[in-house]
Structure formats: structure tokens, C-alpha cells
Design a protein around this nucleic acid. Structure first.
Lengths: 242, 242
DNA sequence: CGGAGTCTTGAAATATGTCAACTCCCGTGG
DNA sequence: CCACGGGAGTTGACATATTTCAAGACTCCG
């Protein structure tokens, strides 16, 4: 982790201004936050927080991807959350977290010290409310993931994962074909996210490739050729696709 | 569902008074709630809410067990939450839910109409705060369940499930042996909760029985003979057992 | 007593994991 | 510039946990 830089970017120009914890803030509130915030950057693979750590700071992901993961006695691990830009780390009233937070790619966080931030929440309903919304969104995502982990086949898991990437990284589509996307994680990380092994992940990607649903340029760059085919491969009930 | 009975029980004597959404309320606030609430009872197996339903009411589980579940196109289903007494159904700002809510046993709910309840939240920070705490608790539970679904073996899943029952139903222990507990669900429901088939659930219960970890009196009544053995069988990291 | 739902148990099928070899890619250092 | 090395990814053969299919046992209730 490099040294915390004091507020390099004005909140007004921040790329996550309208989606992060500050989304509902007015200008006055934004000024308050601006004085409290500092940026921290973590290299890919670096651990941001360890399970059980005293939570010194909380904050939003500005750039890059971070992940939450849990580990069993014998080392098996499961990702329990993927944090993309605008997602928040740390919760009011929790001094510690029961999972590791790791930088999956290089990550930039907009951090606040926990104590002052919690005081701010008391008098800033806009922030408290947004925090609630973010928590509920995470809960929804967690429940979708439970369905995936408990009941989907390897193929469905991979298709769902790709579909999520498409949704969460805003991309333009040109006649049903999507602009190139990049996998923000290694096969092993994907495996830990989907409850599979990295070999199975590799095989299923190649399965979808052979069927012409996706195409790889690079091992990390791909595009979706058949969006309908992708949806069909997720196993989800079509009636409820959002 | 029987007819809603108007506030049969005084909040002061309510069994979930100190844990439900009203936990932090003072007497005045409680009086407010008391005028809004009504009880509804659902028989075992009855559906309380369908996925996609307009959410007319929200409320707390007073008695019994309800479950949240999601279903795939072809009918595979996964429980994504188990609601025990004091747990809350419905979230501020959400008009609908994206899972089915079903009564697992006979369930009594303490209900509020959604619209008035949401207004009440605005002026009652005690309720809003408690709602946040409950949501965060659910998020924690969901993440533990993701680890279970993605990475645990059938045996570990069953052991974890039993452990959860022990924790969530307060029971006295007598020299490491626990008073009889009852399974609140069928083998099939347990299977849907754990991402297994009912046959596997049955086999694993019998496995733990043969090893003397648990003992069944009835098919639904059992006791834990070896609490340490149970913990060991969950696969969880001992250092972090709470 | 009969029947339906629930649960158990067994044998066979299969999806995914495990183990191992090999390729590809990229950066480093001589 | 090339050789080297290591991490990441692929592919194959085999092992196995869990599912699937099927039959039968138990239990409650009309």
C-alpha cells in the first residue's frame, strides 16, 4: 500500500459520485466528506484487510476490483463478494469484519477513518440511507449467489458470471454483439468465486467458446457473440431476468 | 391464512420484544407500533409471499419458521434464508421481493402495512437503525452460507446446519449434552437449504448418528451428544468460532 | 385398514475434482 | 537479442462425492 494521498480528486469530478455512499449528498455534505477523505492504493494481490482486524477505516472502491473471501480450516476458500467501483467496505456498528478483503486488480479506495465517519452518519441521513441501500443491494447479490453456488451446474455458473460482468461493466452493444470485455481476475479467483476448481473454469470457458457464445482475443479479453445464448445458459428463469 | 387479528398481544409481553425491529423502541414508540400492528398466521407449507408480488405488508416472525427461496427455470430450488422468530420480512424502499416466502412450520407474523410503516421509519430512527442491524446480520449469515454452499462437503454442511440450530434456538446444556432439539423442516427442505438432495441429507444424518455425534429420538427430535465433535465436523476454522 | 407423505437404503450413473504433463506468455537478466 | 524461469492457463486420464433412480419402511391420520 502506498502512502495515503490527501483528497487528490474533487468529489464533484469523482467517477463514482452518483453511485457511491455519497450519492444522495448535497454540496454542503460533499464538502464535509471532502475534508475527511483520503485515497489509498493497493497493488493486485495485496491484502487490504484481514479477517478479525480492527477496522481502522472504511471507504469506497473508486477504481479496480476487490474481493471478500472466507477460508476453511484446510485452506479451501470461497469468495463471498466482489467489490467493483462504488461498492463500500465496512459497516456502521461493526468494529471488525469476518472475511479477508483483497485487491484483485490494482485498487484505489476513497477512505474515511471509521470513528469520525460513524459520527458523521448520525447527523447525515443522506449517507445513512445510501449505506442502507448499498447493504440491501449486497444482500440481493448474495442471495443470487447462493442460488448459483447451491444449485447451478459448472456451465451455468460460468455463464452467470459472464452475464454479471456484462451487466456491471457498462458497455455499449452493437447489434447484440458486445464490445470486448476484460476478465478482472485469474481462473483461480474465478473458481473461488464460483465454488469450482480452476480446471473446471477453464473447461467451461472453452465450452462456451466452442459453441460460439463467447470469443477470446487474449486470455483476459473476450467478447459476447450471442447474448441470448448466454442468458439461456445461465439456467435462470427468463421471466424474471432484470 | 386466517383473518388478521388486531394486536392480540401487548408489545410489552411479546416474546421477540428485545430482538425484533422494535428492539430499541421506547414506550412511546411501542405504543405507536401497537396501534399499527396486526397478527397473521400461516399454516405449514403455505406461501406467505410470491416472488414479484407487490409487497402489501412487512413484519416480524413472532413464532415458527419461514423460509426464503429462489427457483431456477427447471424447478431446482435453493433456500436463501431461514427466518426464525424476531427476523424481519420486507425492506425499506423495496416494493417487491425476488424470492418466495413460505411458512416452513406454522408461522405467526406481526405485520404492518408497508406504506405507513415506511413513513414511520422516517421519524423513528430507533426503528431505522434496528432495521439496518437486522439487514447486516442477514448479510453476515448469507456470506457464511455462501462458504457452506460453495466449498463444504455434504457432511460439513449437515454439521453446520445442526450447529446453527443449536445456536439459534437457545437451549440449556447439561454437561456438554444438549436438551432435545427439533428439526423445524423436512429432509427435502433441509436439502434445499444446503444445496443437496434429500437422500444425501438422510445419509449424512445417519453418518453423524453412527459416530455418536447426534442421536435421534424421533425423526424430528434429536440431541447433540458430542458438541466438540460437531464443531470439528463443520470444517470451520476453530480460531474463529464465535 | 389403507394410503399418502416422509424417510431410509441400495446400486448405478455422472459431474466435477484431482493429479499430472504440457503450452503459452511475459518479464528479467545475462 | 536471446535464454531462462515462473506464473497462468490448457488438456487429458482417472478418482470420487454426490446425484439419480428405484424399492421398501415407517408414521400419521382419516
Amino acid at each position: 500500500m502506498n502512502f495515503p494521498l490527501k483528497a487528490a480528486v474533487k468529489c464533484g469530478q469523482c467517477p463514482i459520485r452518483h453511485r457511491a455512499v455519497c450519492a444522495h449528498c448535497d454540496d454542503d455534505e460533499l464538502t464535509l466528506l471532502e475534508h475527511m477523505k483520503s485515497y489509498k492504493t493497493f497493488a493486485a494481490g495485496e491484502t487490504i484487510l484481514w479477517r478479525g482486524d480492527e477496522l481502522a477505516f472504511v471507504g469506497s472502491v473508486v477504481q479496480g476490483v476487490a474481493s471478500l473471501s472466507k477460508t476453511l480450516e484446510d485452506g479451501r476458500t470461497q469468495m463471498v463478494g466482489l467489490l467493483l467501483p462504488s461498492d463500500f467496505i465496512g459497516r456502521p456498528g461493526r468494529q471488525q469484519i469476518e472475511f479477508d478483503v483483497t485487491a484483485t486488480t490494482e485498487v484505489t479506495l476513497c477512505c474515511f477513518e471509521r470513528k469520525p465517519f460513524e459520527q458523521l452518519i448520525q447527523n447525515t441521513p443522506h449517507v445513512a440511507q445510501r449505506l442502507m441501500e448499498l447493504a440491501l443491494d449486497e444482500l440481493d447479490a448474495a442471495r443470487d449467489w447462493m442460488l448459483l453456488l447451491g444449485r447451478k451446474t459448472a456451465r451455468e455458473k460460468i455463464a452467470t458470471f459472464v452475464q454479471m460482468l456484462v451487466r456491471r461493466t457498462q458497455v455499449r452493444h452493437i447489434d447484440g454483439k458486445l464490445h470486448p470485455l476484460s476478465m478482472p481476475m485469474t481462473r483461480e479467483q474465478i473458481a473461488d468465486y464460483l465454488g469450482l476448481t480452476l480446471e473446471t473454469v477453464s473447461r467451461q470457458f472453452n465450452g462456451l467458446k466452442k459453441e460460439g457464445v463467447i470469443a477470446f482475443s487474449d486470455r483476459r479479453q473476450f467478447e459476447v457473440l450471442d447474448l441470448a445464448g448466454l442468458h439461456a445458459a445461465t439456467g435462470d428463469d427468463a421471466e424474471f431476468i432484470s
